[in-house]
């Protein structure tokens, strides 16, 4: 491309593609900083009550199925990997690999939510859903309130992410994204990885407190 020809992907308010890319990237990081503070409120509440009621938090943690939690961690890490590959395919302007990797991400994200739904159903049947039918001490109820608020807010972010994939797929098929213009894919990838990071912290904080030594053996 000659230097005075305007690239099609460049919006008129930007000097060049690099500046356009960096502006989009920076905006997304500003949004993620806001999301960190949003989840930060939940993490702060969790930290205070865990400090006050450690015994109940240990009891609550031992109610959670560690194998499903670990499996979901693996599923989400795998989906982050497929998303990173999707962004790489977008950078190379490879349309079909991009579509395949993003569909793989969608399948893994859905798998996570299905496993989570089974966990929620299990909690409900054991009377561990905070509410009038809750079977346990008030302090245990606080643990499960945090469990449902934190994993629920995380699951909501996953559902929004899956919705965004559904929105992106027809645009990918139409060939909207090229090696010159792929910021929406890149920024969606940042969002998806951020949601993964939240789970990376939720898993040890909720599932791994005060485990009894080797109960599986």
């Amino acid at each position: 491309m000659s230097s005075n020809a305007q690239p099609v992907a460049l919006n008129h308010q930007f000097e060049d593609l690099q500046q356009q890319y960096e502006a989009a990237n920076m905006g997304m990081w500003a949004f993620i900083a806001q999301e960190i503070m949003f989840f930060g409120g939940l993490f702060a509440g969790y930290t205070v009550y865990r400090f006050k009621y450690l015994g109940a938090f240990i009891e609550g943690s031992n109610h959670l199925p560690i194998e499903l939690g670990a499996l979901n961690t693996a599923v989400l890490i795998a989906s982050s990997f497929t998303m990173a590959m999707a962004v790489r395919a977008a950078q190379q302007g490879a349309k079909n690999p991009l579509l395949r990797w993003i569909l793989a991400t969608m399948v893994l994200g859905t798998t996570f939510l299905v496993i989570k739904a089974f966990e929620y159903a299990d909690k409900y049947h054991h009377g561990l859903l905070p509410g009038s039918s809750f079977e346990g001490s008030g302090q245990l109820k606080i643990f499960f309130s945090f469990y449902f608020a934190m994993t629920g807010m995380h699951a909501l972010h996953m559902i929004i992410g899956l919705g965004l994939i559904v929105w992106l797929i027809p645009k990918i098929r139409r060939g909207t994204y090229t090696s010159e213009y792929y910021s929406p894919i890149e920024n969606f990838g940042l969002y998806w990885h951020f949601v993964d990071i939240i789970w990376i912290f939720l898993f040890p904080l909720l599932y791994l407190i005060g485990r009894d030594p080797w109960p599986i053996m």
Partner: peptide
């Protein structure tokens, strides 16, 4: 971008 990425985490640590 390093600064932008670090700012959120850094603020959260101060907060906690």
């Amino acid at each position: 971008m390093w600064v932008f990425a670090a700012a959120g985490f850094f603020t959260l640590i101060i907060f906690l």
